[in-house]
């Protein structure tokens, strides 16, 4: 790209971009502000004072359904989905570096899992459990349903990562006498750690926020998005916004945690990396 003065096209596009960011974040900021509404405040502006009233209200379980329980279930489910997604995607990513019979089939299964609408997967698993006479629960059927959403993302990320991975590192490890497991444990995993954290981020957040795939699979006990959805139909106080602020806060915390740890890994690598081959 040429350097020097930026043309009018740049400023026009920059303004468009800024407007889009406002469009993207504006509503979320609005409910963030409104969740601190005073006790007599309503669902829209103006603010009637500033308070934590609606947050307190949120944690009194009897008033607004089972917030604490559903929050806990969603956290556990999210963490389990994250761990399984990372391990299975990594393992399958390793396998896909070799040619094997049926690789095309598994690949198209993953693509199908992405494009088949969530509601159909939810419906299918729900029907399957009903036909078999099993009760759907959040830790069996919903867990499987969430994996069908997170695994394709994990697998595609692993494909992209292994395409850029230099296999000479592994060969060097093997030449130095490392067993296959040692090569993976001490060479491949440390190199790919930032990407694995990325896959984990997808695994947790996609599961934590999943609605449609939980709908017919969660059974008696709701996950958080189902609980929130239920509340939108019968709660008309700012407690809804307090809930939104809390869950968005959790999401942001997880995203920040992932970004910080990726940066940390990369800094550490730059600091501890060998300077062989670099002239002083």
């Amino acid at each position: 790209m040429q350097h020097g003065r930026r043309g009018p096209a740049f400023w026009l596009l920059a303004a468009f971009f800024a407007l889009f960011v406002l469009f993207l974040y504006g509503p979320t900021l609005t409910i963030l502000v409104l969740s601190f509404q005073g006790p007599s405040g309503g669902l829209t502006f103006p603010m009637n004072g500033v308070s934590f009233y609606w947050f307190q209200n949120l944690f009194e379980a009897q008033l607004v359904g089972d917030f604490a329980g559903s929050f806990e279930r969603s956290l556990i489910l999210g963490i389990a989905t994250m761990l399984v997604t990372v391990v299975l995607s990594f393992s399958a990513g390793l396998a896909f570096r070799n040619r094997f019979r049926g690789s095309g089939f598994v690949f198209y299964l993953a693509i199908a899992s992405l494009i088949v609408p969530s509601i159909l997967i939810s419906l299918g698993i729900g029907l399957l459990f009903r036909v078999l006479g099993w009760d759907p629960t959040w830790y069996t059927s919903a867990f499987g349903a969430h994996l069908t959403w997170t695994l394709p993302f994990g697998l595609l990320i692993m494909f992209a990562v292994f395409n850029r991975f230099d296999r000479r590192y592994e060969e060097a490890a093997r030449d130095l006498g490392a067993t296959p497991w040692q090569t993976i444990r001490h060479v491949v995993i440390p190199i790919l750690l930032p990407s694995l954290i990325g896959v984990g981020l997808f695994g947790f957040t996609l599961s934590y926020d999943e609605f449609a795939r939980s709908l017919y699979t969660a059974g008696t006990f709701n996950t958080l998005p189902l609980e929130i959805y239920g509340m939108t139909t019968n709660i008309t106080t700012p407690v809804l916004y307090a809930l939104g602020t809390v869950t968005t806060g959790v999401s942001f915390l997880v995203i920040a945690l992932a970004l910080v740890s990726v940066t940390w890994v990369q800094r550490r690598r730059a600091r501890l990396g060998s300077d062989a081959g670099k002239a002083a």
Binding site: L88, A92, F96, V106, A110, I121, G124, I125, L155
Partner: peptide, 22 residues
């Protein structure tokens, strides 16, 4: 095959079988 089996199994049990059920 061992490396790709768990992922394939999840897709079979929670994608293929449910769609067949539908």
């Amino acid at each position: 095959y061992l490396q790709v089996a768990p992922l394939s199994l999840v897709f079979l049990l929670f994608l293929v079988v449910p769609i067949a059920t539908i």
